[in-house]
Design a protein around this nucleic acid. Structure first.
Length: 267
DNA sequence: CAATGATCCTGTCCGC
DNA sequence: TGCGGACAGGATCATT
């Protein structure tokens, strides 16, 4: 599932594929994948990308005509660059055509991914309230503690809340809690300053390590050249039977999702 | 406001 | 071999 490191990797690939190019058209093959800001009363293409920004799991592309694109891959979205694009695939939901005949194809088996075209000035209306970027200086133990104050929900659920920390998903939350030696069921308001510090440190570490190897491919995630990431080889508890110390990993359900943790390593 | 649960979607896997 | 059901889960919406 694309989380921060995967979105980061895809955005980098997207930017290099679009470098010096013009997007000549956007085609949509599935209703609901591409949507348009009603204020967009002009034809947005052709246009050039002048900036690519990641915010949480959202990719934002600013075009040279005051138009922006928001792309969210959700669970199964993939952006794949092809110099000589094939015919439309069963799971292809949209396609960007470039001025050199290449294409960026948006595949999305489960159709939850979104592409939004909007006036750049309206960007804030199309992004939800997002919490701190975990790789920014805003993400501190103090920030986290303040957000967790009075929250009875399990820390696992709270770390998945994008309005608290933007960009974490199921995989990295399981991994960072293992590294921080904290049980996923721990109530938010029971987290100590020391634990908050551990969480911040290990969040930053695990995300940076994953970015270095192009993200985690557990199912559908691919880079823009259709290659897998490599961080799945370094996971310690997610979808594991035993942790690196040889203890049995337990699997529980929290908020409808699987949590993996080691009852011996995590307190 | 906070917490929980349903919903959207389709391919894969498991048990019988 | 085939079938039904569980599962995968990010974000949003409804309910309590």
């Amino acid at each position: 599932m694309p989380e921060l490191p995967e979105v980061h990797t895809v955005l980098e690939g997207l930017q290099s594929a679009l470098e010096g190019r013009q997007i000549s058209a956007l085609h949509s093959y599935y209703p609901g994948t591409v949507s348009y800001d009603p204020a967009l009363d002009y034809e947005p293409f052709p246009a050039r990308v002048i900036a690519g920004i990641r915010r949480g799991k959202y990719m934002i592309l600013n075009l040279d005509n005051a138009t922006s694109l928001i792309i969210h891959l959700r669970m199964t979205g993939k952006l794949i660059y092809e110099a000589q694009p094939n015919e439309v695939h069963k799971h292809e939901r949209a396609r960007f055509e470039l001025d050199n005949g290449a294409a960026i194809r948006f595949f999305d088996l489960r159709t939850f991914g979104k592409i939004i075209l909007l006036k750049s000035e309206n960007l804030q209306n199309y992004l939800p309230k997002l919490g701190a970027e975990p790789l920014s200086p805003d993400f501190t133990a103090q920030y986290l503690l303040q957000k967790l104050k009075g929250r009875k929900a399990p820390i696992k659920n709270l770390l998945l809340d994008q309005s608290i920390v933007a960009g974490l998903g199921n995989i990295y939350v399981c991994e960072l809690l293992y590294r921080a030696r904290i049980r996923p069921e721990t109530a938010g308001d029971k987290i100590t300053l020391q634990q908050a510090k551990e969480m911040v440190k290990h969040t930053v570490d695990v995300l940076n390590e994953a970015i270095l190897v192009g993200g985690t491919s557990v199912s559908d995630y691919r880079r823009i050249d259709d290659k897998t990431g490599e961080f799945q080889h370094f996971l310690r508890v997610y979808h594991k039977e035993i942790c690196p110390l040889g203890h049995e990993v337990k699997r529980i359900r929290q908020g409808g999702r699987s949590s993996f943790f080691c009852p011996l390593c995590q307190k």
